[in-house]
Amino acid sequence: MSADARTSILKPMSVAGNPDAPVDTRPSKFRRPHVTVRGLTKRFDDRTIYEKFDLDLPRGQFVSIFGPNGCGKSTLMNMIAGLIPVDEGQILFDGQTIDEIRFGYVFQNYRDALFPWISAWDNIAYPLRFMKVPKAERNRRVDALVKKFDVRINLKQYPYQMSGGQQQLVSILRALVVDPEILFLDEPFSALDYEMTLFMRDQMQRMFQETGTTTIIVSHDLDEAVYLADRILLLSRAPAKVVDFPIVDVPRPRNALTLADPEFNRVKGHCLEIFQQQVRK
């Protein structure tokens, strides 16, 4: 192992939120990736979505997956999360399979993902039941999480008594309560109204900054994809290839002013250009 590679293991990845941290511009092969995808192949009937697809996802970063409709953005994330089986290939998290790690998944449709028969609080605590966490400890953990993110919702309510945004917030807390090594978000805000979407983006950013959990989001909204991400995975039409994987070098916490930031707009413009190239193909 070269000295260079070793220091990169010992030194944490640069976090865009810390302006003092140098932006890691080294080629990705020198970094220690969190997720490695090798030789991934996936077909639906006769259509090949992925063919010998390789990908490394960096640790502790927020990655947005973006690309033309039907290119398999969600499919890729769901295969990584183990929700959809792969035809061929291997997906590892630090050398472990998805079954061996703790992960969180937030569905697009919060209405169908939460359990309406138990309170929001019990929904958040639900995954801890299967980790053999005693009841008192479960409550303590939910309490800590709620305090950490300053959640001001009456969690004794049932999910159907809450607004869409509140329900999705509960979903996100449920994904975070297991202290996941990686977090998957499937268009989490697309069912919310605009005002709530903006609010939830900032909540999400805050949670990411607090926890530093490797996070993958599928988004149809380029503004959102760039606003939240450290890097944007731009996919081509199926069979999907990585067209580019640009870094969003905009400091956190990002806010409304970020939308006018030249670097933000440069990256967004670049992504849009690639996106349009792919759509026209």
Binding site: L83, N109, A113, L114, P127, F130
Partner: peptide
């Protein structure tokens, strides 16, 4: 979705 959610949470 709900059954899937339970499954991925380790139920």
């Amino acid at each position: 979705t709900r059954v899937l959610a339970a499954k991925i949470m380790g139920a």
